[in-house]
Amino acid sequence: MSAAEEASAAGARDPEVRGLRLVVVLLALTVVSGLIDAVSYLGLGRVFTANMTGNVVVLGFAAAGAPGFSVPHTATSLACFLLGAAAGGRVAAHVAAGSRRRWTRLTLAAEAVLVGASAAAAFTWPHTTGTRYALIALTAFAMGLRNATVRKLGVADLTTTTVLTMTLTGLAAESRLGDATSRRSPRRAAAVVAMFAGACLGAWLALHHGLGIPLLIAAAASGVLAVAASGRE
């Protein structure tokens, strides 16, 4: 065996190397989350369909009667997210450990279809109450399905692609200003940048071009990532 072949074989046995493609996929999915939350919060009545931490807080605002927030919209998002997560958990329970790439690919393909359907609704029936609820339900279900899958994958610092509180905590607490024990600061910083980039792009598109285009981009990205997630462990 040549030196190059030996290095390749060693890389194949290294879990960090084997998981590199998956890390890139999860970071890209974090960008998609930013896109979707920008659409939902700015275009669907101040409701999150990816970030459920924010959504619970928003539901509290709405329940207290704060202007500009809707209990039905937020409750719909939470319910559909939980249904999606339950579906993802049910599927995960029947997937063999050795087929996680296939399982991830199928989940992302389902996400692409769901978000694509929401984009089609946004283009076909814009500015209607039914469309608003359809977009909330479809994107929240897709995000719940994805989150359940990502959680089961158990990639360090990327166990969720929709919430950054613990990522930011780890980034600061384990930095040189904290206990200086971090070995994954680049990954954590990349997750924060990915979410920011997705939210910024999604907000700009939603404000200037409507909801259909950012949703279509999110669906296309999920489809591409479903292909990228394929391959051997």
Rank of each mutant, 00 (worst) to 15 (best):
G89Q: 06
L225H: 02
E111I: 06
S70R: 08
V58F: 07
A180H: 15
R13F: 14
E174R: 13
S175P: 00
A148F: 06
L20C: 14
M52G: 07
K152N: 09
G231S: 00
A117T: 13
T165F: 03
A219L: 05
G178Y: 12
A12V: 09
A109L: 08
T162V: 11
A117D: 04
L177R: 10
L59R: 00
G19D: 15
A121E: 09
S33M: 00
G130F: 00
Y41P: 02
R102T: 13
G65V: 13
A97K: 10
E111R: 06
V163I: 11
L22G: 02
A221Q: 04
G11R: 12
W204I: 11
L145N: 02
V57D: 07
G84F: 04
G34L: 03
A172H: 10
P126Q: 01
S33W: 00
P15Q: 05
Y133H: 07
D179E: 13
A121C: 12
A156W: 14
A63E: 14
A203N: 08
A137H: 00
C200V: 15
E233T: 03
L153D: 13
L207A: 15
L216H: 01
R100P: 10
I213L: 07
L83I: 06
L215F: 04
T128E: 02
F69A: 03
A199H: 11
A221E: 03
G198N: 10
P67H: 15
T124Q: 05
G130V: 02
A206R: 15
R146W: 01
L171W: 12
S222F: 08
G154S: 14
T129S: 14
A50Q: 06
P214F: 07
L27P: 12
L114D: 09
L35I: 07
R101P: 06
A38H: 04
G212F: 11
T124H: 08
A7I: 11
V163H: 05
V58Y: 08
F61E: 05
V163Y: 12
F141C: 03
T104G: 09
E111L: 07
G65L: 04
K152M: 08
V47S: 00
L42G: 12
S8Q: 11
L216G: 13
D14I: 06
S33G: 05
H209W: 14
A75W: 15
L26M: 14
V193R: 08
A62Y: 09
L27C: 13
F196A: 07
L108N: 08
W125S: 01
G34W: 12
A93G: 15
